[in-house]
Write a protein that binds this DNA or RNA. Structure first.
Lengths: 340, 340
DNA sequence: AGAATTATCCAAAGCGCTTTGGGGATCGAG
DNA sequence: CTCGATCCCCAAAGCGCTTTGGATAATTCT
């Protein structure tokens, strides 16, 4: 069933039917109701491709999804997506996800923009320098980053968590508790969120006249297996760290297991603070020793990004261009005074 | 840059340029190269909405994603998606995800079909009865289910894991080890995969003259928190179970924590077999006591579904309509002889 | 009552692409 | 030299929708 068939059946022109459906005023109340009813009965749904072609709008936001055999599913990603979806469903938006191999992302974005399928683009996993940001900046499609490239000034719209501040604060707490030997269990080094967290830690350490030995800084995907292995290595270090900062509760999961396995007591022999993205399936308060965390909901970030993107497309002008969210430090049992 | 501009610039007609670009034979080698080069230089990418409108093909597969404030991110979902993406990227396909509140899914699918944005539809989280399946069956768009509705005969294309068989086999193993008191930590009851797993367990129990007390069967979302709480309740049961089947490693995570907290030894005091979807961030072999599992890769299922869907659209006829994958029973340390 | 609005509706153009149905050269064959 | 093939290429229609620019009939104003 298309517009033509529907209008034929009603004995009206396509113009009128289209207007009735889209709430334009140039149509009488009576016909409008008749049209609406017929659309309902016949189950008419407009063809979005045609709509998009005619209006230039698609009610959809695009994102490219990295795909490679070695890249598995990421719970952080789906958590974020659920937030984005929450907002999208309210406004009848949808997403188009273009999978791309990591070395072809720029092209994937280009295709996405040119495709005419999307009104706006969302970008995550920011690196530095990031050619994707350059591309977006020079094209005319609305976009929004989750994260920032490095540096102080930013001439692009973003929503980011103050990762540096979060880890700075966390490290400060640990320093106050008397810790001197730190380790870092971080996400992939190329991502700026990881870099910033490292900087936050190093800054706090430097202020205390300390530093982070390279062999006690680990970078990897944020899964429990990586956390386990890295922590085992940390524990075998001649100067075993007593305080560790951890970029994700997923990493912490493995790390805690390694700590237990070594017969150490979390919060006593060794303190740990993890960043908590509030993954719905992995809550830090449920660990056998509840985890002290820096918290910032990924889902909320997704929802907010959806809100801003959709708002911008609708012409809202009261939306901030750039937002930096502070993470919340929540002290639980995994942190305690430094041993001896 | 659109086709018209490109062809003007080349002094050719849109027809010729289009044909050159799409590899039709009615164009000389020389012009073809000239066109290709110009397209390259100008960065011309065809407008997909227009292409879709003209051809009826979109190189995209659609899926609806349940969205509600109380639904968080699901690592199973993103694991599956990564498999789907792996296949999609090979063929330059993309997805469109339509978020929908749980009570509006049928409509969301209708819109998706009518939208003209997608060539095929993928459906997961099958329930019984499932109105979405009815809808798909009666519409003419290609589709594929991950899972099945209940019953023996199925007149729709699907890929499913033999959930009943998996839990039957798992229960058999436990029975052989002498266990008599079972518990079940399952996914949401409305999903058929959960129902089937329960049936598998009950069948094995019945064959041994045993049964599953209702209070020892727990249904919920598959996260660690739910696993922890349910297991705590199980352990408080007057007839504490010695064997538990668990629908996910995420649930097992919480369950194991409850077991440890109670001072029980996994694989000695209590045995546990979990279904392993091979979540990349949560491997059963890395648990402090490695988990015995029934394994079936969600990612592989995603890839296979992508393969079949894309293959079908390309006209391949050598693809099976229905596939049932056996899960692999992998014995590790979380299972042992029944105590006393 | 005649003019000026106002309320409804329609025909047709256009979004960017593919595809049908030719049409003019070029070339070897008769 | 002419005729049918063979190559290349083009004009125009059509995909399903929105939107511009009227047209017609019904109201209101003076």
């Amino acid at each position: 069933m298309n517009l033509k068939q529907l209008s034929d059946r009603l004995g009206l022109s396509q113009t009128t039917v289209s207007r009735a459906l889209n709430g334009y005023p140039e149509v009488s109340q009576a016909t409008r109701e008749r049209v609406l009813k017929a659309a309902q009965q016949t189950g008419y749904k407009p063809n979005k491709a045609a709509q998009r072609l005619a209006t230039g709008k698609a009610k959809s936001i695009g994102l490219v999804m990295q795909s490679a055999p070695e890249i598995g599913g990421d719970p952080h990603f789906s958590e974020f997506l659920s937030g984005l979806a929450e907002e999208a469903v309210k406004h009848d938006f949808h997403f188009v996800m273009a999978p791309a191999s990591p070395d072809d992302e720029v092209n994937a974005i280009k295709r996405l923009i040119a495709s005419g399928y999307v009104d706006a683009i969302f970008l995550a996993h920011v690196v530095d320098p990031d050619p994707r940001v350059e591309l977006l900046r020079s094209s005319s499609i609305p976009y929004l980053l989750h994260g920032r490239i490095m540096g102080e000034t930013h001439d692009y719209p973003y929503l980011d968590v103050d990762n540096e501040g979060a880890f700075y604060t966390a490290a400060k707490l640990l320093l106050q508790l008397g810790h001197k030997r730190f380790a870092l269990l971080n996400g992939m080094e190329r991502f700026t969120f990881a870099t910033r967290r490292k900087i936050g830690l190093e800054k706090a350490l430097a202020e205390a006249g300390l530093s982070l030995p390279p062999e006690l800084a680990h970078h990897s995907v944020m899964g429990d297996q990586a956390g386990f292995r890295a922590m085992e290595r940390f524990l075998a270090h001649p100067e075993r760290p007593t305080a560790v900062l951890c970029a994700s509760t997923a990493l912490a999961l493995g790390a805690v297991r390694a700590i237990n396995k070594a017969g150490l007591k979390l919060g006593v022999d060794i303190s740990l603070i993890a960043h908590d993205d509030v993954l719905s399936t992995l809550r830090p308060e449920n660990f056998s020793v509840p985890l002290t965390t820096t918290r910032s909901s990924l889902r909320a970030a997704g929802a907010r990004i959806g809100q801003r993107l959709i708002g911008t497309l609708a012409g809202a002008s009261d939306l901030p261009e750039q937002e930096l969210w502070e993470a919340e430090l929540i002290v639980r049992a995994s942190t305690g005074p430094a041993p001896f």
